[in-house]
């Protein structure tokens, strides 16, 4: 692990929990992605107050009227207009409890907060659309070849200065 959690937070180690849960069920161990090489690290070129933020979220969020995600290795993404009211947002996923996300989608897609940060001048603006997808794609190769390139392209086409990513 590259970064140890602070000692005053009793974190839940989901790598350990899934490993032991799968062992108990007789499943093969899941191999979480492990990168020992540091990430690229791009210095921001603009002050935060002038920066456009694009939001990306896994968690199976789509808009009423859009085609929902499948729950098996769906490598597509949806584009949620930044001003979409909460009432039009929908959530389905195979791996987490969506009770609260359906009551208040801002727990997994912080669009309201980003709009407020833009209105308050903390950030410059929010990209025209948020990019949402399913996550839970078990093949890292498939994720890297079929989902990621399109997301990277859209971040540039949307002229984003910062990407905020929200996994579930």
């Amino acid at each position: 692990m590259s970064t140890a959690p602070p000692s005053d937070i009793d974190i839940v180690d989901y790598i350990d929990v899934t490993k032991r849960a799968y062992e108990a069920l007789g499943y093969q161990a899941y191999r979480w992605a492990e990168n020992t090489e540091p990430s690229a690290f791009v210095a921001p070129t603009k002050p935060l107050a002038e920066s456009k933020v694009v939001l990306l979220a896994s968690g199976g969020i789509y808009r009423h009227g859009d085609i929902a995600f499948t729950h098996k290795d769906d490598v597509g993404h949806r584009e949620i207009p930044v001003d979409t009211p909460d009432e039009e947002l929908r959530v389905t996923h195979f791996a987490y409890d969506q009770t609260h996300a359906r009551q208040d989608p801002n727990v997994v897609l912080p669009l309201t907060a980003l709009r407020t940060l833009a209105a308050d001048g903390v950030i410059g603006s929010v990209a025209d659309v948020a990019l949402t997808f399913m996550g839970g794609i078990y093949s890292q190769r498939r994720l890297g070849e079929q989902l990621t390139p399109g997301l990277v392209s859209r971040c540039h086409e949307l002229d984003a200065d910062i990407a905020l990513l929200v996994p579930v």
Binding site: A33, N35, V42, L56, T148, L151, H156, L165
Partner: peptide
């Protein structure tokens, strides 16, 4: 993993 690719493409994440 997606964040690392976006960062590598030049956008801070």
């Amino acid at each position: 993993l997606i964040a690392r690719e976006i960062e590598a493409s030049g956008i801070p994440t």
